[in-house]
Amino acid sequence: MSNFESFTAWLVDFYNFRIVLQYADQIAAGLWNTLFAAGASLVFSLIFGTLLAFARRSGNALIWRPADAYIQFIRATPLLIQIYLVYFGLPSLLPFTGRWPELWLGIMALTIHTTPYMAEIIRSGINAVPKGQIEGAMAVAMSPRQRMQYVILPQAFTNTLPALLGQTAILIKDTSLLSAIAVFDLLNAGLLLNSERVRPKEGFLTVAAIYLAIYAVLVVVSRRVELKLGGAAWNRRPA
């Protein structure tokens, strides 16, 4: 055998990309489910997170105490247990949910898990908006709701965009736990390859590389965002 042939033979033995190509469809399906689950959870958790942030900031103890209890519970228990509680527990409380696709239950669980983290980020973003902004809005007779909608929230989101992107990266990784409740996500595609062909490197290293690619995209986006925010004149304090 020539050197090149023996090298390719070794390469195929180490990482048989042909097998990977055979499973390309399943990997694509898994990737789609991963991205869909992450995207849906992201949208829901941002919406609910904003509401939860308001609840947490409320002066009314009947509102902020339960909100805080929910946040502390999620922070102090593992995600996997939270997923099991939703996946197994919900159908036992509401039997009709037992017929729901696992993906929906997974998205529910991820949303319930991610909402408090988003809420804390948004809350700190709201607190970080300079008091002068609020005073300026009050001086032009904007109502509290208008102040929140047009002045505070937009700045809170831009303040915390890097943290929100970081939480999104975590969310992508969290979707891998949905493989434990039979959601056919990216990781399950790798598990399938491994269980059918007993090729762990092709199964798991491929999957790891795809997760890394998604993460790399998020890192690049995050750096661009930080540069834009750093340069934007609107956020500069008067000298």
Binding site: K173, D174, S176, L177, P200, L205, Y211, V219
Partner: peptide, 14 residues
């Protein structure tokens, strides 16, 4: 950039 579960499977299988 990689989920912990993937790292676990790599340690366990790969």
């Amino acid at each position: 950039g990689t989920p912990f579960l993937v790292q676990l499977y790599i340690a366990y299988f790969v």
